[in-house]
Design a protein around this nucleic acid. Structure first.
Lengths: 157, 157
DNA sequence: CTCGGGATGTTGAGGGTTCAACATCCACAG
DNA sequence: CTGTGGATGTTGAACCCTCAACATCCCGAG
């Protein structure tokens, strides 16, 4: 009954698995070394910096940074201790909380960004041809679309 | 000085980032649900099951399962508590430890494998064309090769 | 108006990973 | 032989994430 993987498929899967694990571990390690934060936190700072007023509702921030609400709560608490983010209560919705990037947070992001971009270039873009970069985008988009249609899709709770 | 990402590159990068995070989180979640173990532990069991005698030196197992020695130590300790792996001291090298898959561990792997393969098919292979699968392998291989050449390469300590 | 279901965000426990420090042991130069 | 540098594994602390439970609040049906 089980649709086992063929030898070719195994090879694809193991290459994909290995590359992903190692690439993202490497990026995370360099970011931790250069900016003292994990990649998930960097992502949060980026999304905040792109928002108007550098502020977002927690739930909107969770969606844009592909983070669970729980993870975001913990992360923002830590970033707040660090002085990089401030939490404010929301006027229109008493349940809401608004996360706002502080000047210190923005400065930290500006310091970290060049180093991180260099990491991404070295480990992702430089090794690939322009054609492969296009293929990678198409593949990623297809995977995301499939996941989105899945009945048991990505939990957003 | 910084080689910032172009708009196109940004799009590639964010798609890749998002797809990866969500796909692997989904696979991990389903494996946790179906087999009660994280994917890293599943990987360890697989590598052990493929080895002669279903046993491997810790360091060889660490390499094959793309795991740091520290992580492997913790993981094997936990798998040993669970009765799925046994540790034996190595005859030729008194520093060495050999991890051996128990019958219970093999049975657990046999039970988990079909469900996990189905996950992988649904979330990775089914959404991609045969052509894209070939491309994905080439891309992954290129990323791995670049990482391997890197002076600051994947830490294996 | 009000009540119940859904949404928002937080919390704490449990578990996994990383990092640095460490103990032990091999191997080889001298 | 004998040091000594490198390898092998382990450990504990710190940190991050997940999951389930929870408190709070919005909103629409009746």
């Amino acid at each position: 009954m089980t649709r086992w993987l063929s030898a070719d498929e195994q090879a694809v899967w193991r290459a994909f698995l290995g590359a992903n694990k190692l690439v993202f571990e490497q990026l995370d390690r360099e970011l931790q070394r250069d900016a003292k934060i994990p990649h998930a936190y960097y992502e949060i700072l980026v999304r905040l910096s792109e928002a108007p007023e550098r502020a977002l509702r927690m739930s909107a921030l969770a969606d844009r940074s592909q983070s669970s609400r729980s993870r975001l709560s913990h992360a923002v608490a830590r970033l707040e201790d660090q002085g990089w983010v401030k939490r404010e209560s929301c006027a229109e919705d008493k349940r809401g909380q608004i996360a706002r990037l502080t000047d210190e947070g923005f400065a930290a992001l500006e310091a970290a960004a060049p180093l991180h971009v260099e990491s991404v270039r070295r480990h992702v873009f430089d090794p690939l041809t322009a054609e492969q970069q296009r293929q990678l985008k198409a593949i990623s988009t297809a995977l995301l679309a499939a996941l989105h249609d899945d009945p048991d899709g990505p939990a957003r709770t």
